[in-house]
């Protein structure tokens, strides 16, 4: 039996949990920070791969932003088809462009719930990681995201890292809770561990009765490393 070709599926009817990672790849992330982010994404992949629930429901979209923003996964891909994207740091910080791409992907890749139709998606989880101020116009794409009526609300978390972070400004950009941390290797590791734990917790929570409370299932980050910006 072990040599028999088994072409099997992950089953039908499971609601997808979209997870977006918006990663700053501007020049200031060069060197150690971008290497830490790469290791972080690898950690995320291995953590989620080890979780039976998460692996079945999680679909990933990665948007990088430097002088330009790019949806490197070309859409929302099933976790098992998600591979480590190529990440390199150079240029400026087109966070506005990243928010615009996020909105486009939400519009085109997200399945809406229509009574009588095939199942739509859970509310997406979005993590934004940036180390500096945006160099493009972000107000309009942010407003577009906020006023997006056609789709679901999103759970978005923004984390500013390093010394170049202006708390006031990042708070103004963020939709949802905002955090800050330093740009050491261990901080990036803690960040991606938290992302992985959150994704696993939410994917399990949506299997629980009060699925509407999904965000409350998210663990809090280690306050010694990642501080909440009130």
């Amino acid at each position: 039996m072990t040599d028999f070709d088994m072409n099997v599926t992950m089953g039908e009817g499971v609601r997808r949990l979209p997870v977006y990672l918006l990663l700053d790849c501007s020049g200031s992330m060069g060197g150690a920070p971008i290497e830490s982010v790469k290791r972080g994404v690898e950690l995320f992949i291995s953590e989620v791969a080890g979780d039976t629930y998460a692996r079945q429901t999680v679909h990933v979209g990665v948007i990088t932003f430097a002088s330009e923003a790019a949806l490197v996964t070309k859409g929302l891909v099933p976790f098992d088809a998600f591979t480590m994207p190529t990440l390199s740091a150079s240029g400026t910080t087109a966070l506005g462009g990243a928010l615009r791409l996020l909105r486009q992907s939400l519009d085109s890749d997200l399945r809406k719930s229509v009574p009588g139709g095939e199942k739509g998606d859970w509310k997406p989880l979005v993590f934004v990681l940036t180390d500096g101020a945006p160099t493009d116009a972000w107000q309009e794409p942010r407003q577009d995201l906020l006023s997006r009526q056609s789709g679901k609300v999103i759970n978005m978390i923004t984390v500013g890292c390093g010394t170049g972070i202006n708390e006031e400004q990042i708070k103004a950009i963020a939709i949802g809770p905002t955090f800050r941390m330093d740009a050491t290797e261990s901080s990036f590791k803690t960040f991606f561990q938290w992302v992985s734990q959150s994704v696993k917790a939410v994917s399990k929570a949506v299997s629980q009765p009060d699925a509407g409370q999904a965000p409350s299932a998210m663990p809090q980050p280690d306050p010694a490393v990642i501080q909440y910006v009130p």
């Binding site: 089953g11 039908e12 009817g13 009574p115 139709g117 859970w122």
Partner: peptide, 20 residues
């Protein structure tokens, strides 16, 4: 059977929680 025999395959509301 390696599946939930009661798994709904369609939505019953526009909100996923209500639908579930």
């Amino acid at each position: 059977l390696f599946r939930n025999a009661m798994q709904p395959l369609i939505d019953y509301a526009t909100d996923p929680e209500t639908s579930e």
